[in-house]
């Protein structure tokens, strides 16, 4: 078990199973199919992301360096939250990027019944350590417990 201290972007606590992307998450490419065609488990559709492609993102603790790609990314993430197809939380090893931040903040301010805690600045070591299937717990102060 290890603990990593990050910075809270949007608040909340949760416990979920880790899903790890070592490359940037292309939000549009990842969520598009799931949102458009009723895939309630939010299967990742990004063919360029070998870590996530074909895996369920719904309810997972999504661990990643940052998001990349189209500037629809934030609104796609917002829609995923509003449609309740979002990850349980998002954990960034790097500083959060502007698109992911927009999506998380839009959901936090404008979607009333959904919580998706987001913590960033967890460091490269976090992403090196965490593996698919590990248990992740986010504590109130932004500490992330990986076991």
């Amino acid at each position: 078990m290890r603990k990593f201290k990050g910075r809270i972007v949007t608040p909340g606590t949760c416990t979920a199973e880790a899903l790890v992307s070592h490359g940037g998450l292309n939000t549009l490419a990842s969520f598009q199919k799931a949102l458009q065609f009723g895939d309630k488990t939010a299967t990742c559709g990004d063919q360029n992301n070998p870590d996530l492609y074909g895996k369920q993102m719904l309810g997972k603790a999504l661990c990643l360096p940052q998001t990349i790609g189209s500037t629809t990314g934030g609104l796609v993430l917002y829609c995923a939250c509003a449609m309740k197809r979002q990850p349980a939380c998002m954990l960034f090893s790097n500083h959060i990027d502007s698109l992911a931040a927009a999506g998380a903040i839009l959901a936090d301010v404008w979607v009333e019944d959904v919580t998706m805690p987001v913590v960033d600045c967890l460091g490269d070591e976090f992403l090196d350590y965490v593996k698919d299937g590990m248990k992740i717990t986010i504590e109130e102060d932004g500490t992330v417990v990986v076991e």
């Binding site: 990314g73 698109l99 927009a102």
Partner: peptide
């Protein structure tokens, strides 16, 4: 301009 997301724009 920052790389703003849709809606944030």
């Amino acid at each position: 301009c920052n790389r703003n997301s849709g809606i944030m724009d």
